[in-house]
Design a protein around this nucleic acid. Sequence first.
DNA 1: ACTTCATTTGGTCTTTTTGCCAAATTACAA
DNA 2: TTGTAATTTGGCAAAAAGACCAAATGAAGT
Lengths: 110, 110
Amino acid sequence: MNIEKEKDLASSRARIMKALAHPTRIFMVELLSRKEMSVGELTAAVGADVSTVSKHLSLLKQEKILSHTRDGKTVNYSLICPCILEFIHCLDEVISPDAGKGSSCSLVRK
Amino acid sequence: MNIEKEKDLASSRARIMKALAHPTRIFMVELLSRKEMSVGELTAAVGADVSTVSKHLSLLKQEKILSHTRDGKTVNYSLICPCILEFIHCLDEVISPDAGKGSSCSLVRK
DNA sequence: ACTTCATTTGGTCTTTTTGCCAAATTACAA
DNA sequence: TTGTAATTTGGCAAAAAGACCAAATGAAGT
């Protein structure tokens, strides 16, 4: 692969990473991996202003991580691809594969 | 796990994500997964100001993703844990597991 | 049509992130 | 010690991201 293509790929990856690179957003993705939730429920769970939560959600939607369906006057969000959760957990599993063993990889402490 | 612990974990994960959430940084990690490189080599490869590259590197160092050793007047950077690369590729593999198949998961296009 | 509840959008302010320049540091060689 | 190449640091301006309020929109129910 040539260097320009590699840079493009890096940009694509960085966009996704960036969408997940926020405590509230990553937490919401974790919550949504368990069950779909409305904006109100998510707002209560994360403890922030509704408008803030809504904007986080639309960012994740824009990056095609979440989808939403309207049900009456509430809007439910859910993971488009539940495997994104695996990706996040990949951080814990892969980056600190042997948390107890005193390995050199210990980026995320549980 | 209680909700506060979950939020803490989300923050830890977000810190790592954030360190990787930049085209240049993610590209450098990819390069460094192949072989260790000096600041000068990386600068040439990514095409940015040396000082900029140096700052990106120290951010990655701070997050314990990279380590460095001095060799004469050059400094060589390398991945502390090569498995971080697997994590990044996890984005491609896990998030769009079946790129050709017309799946609903297609965040990263190659 | 009028209200009410849930969510989104617009606007603004603050904080963080980037990127470059110039100056400082480090190591080595003459 | 002087000079030179490689890297880091400090400082500053521009750009992006985040948070909150207020106003707008959407979907029922009265």
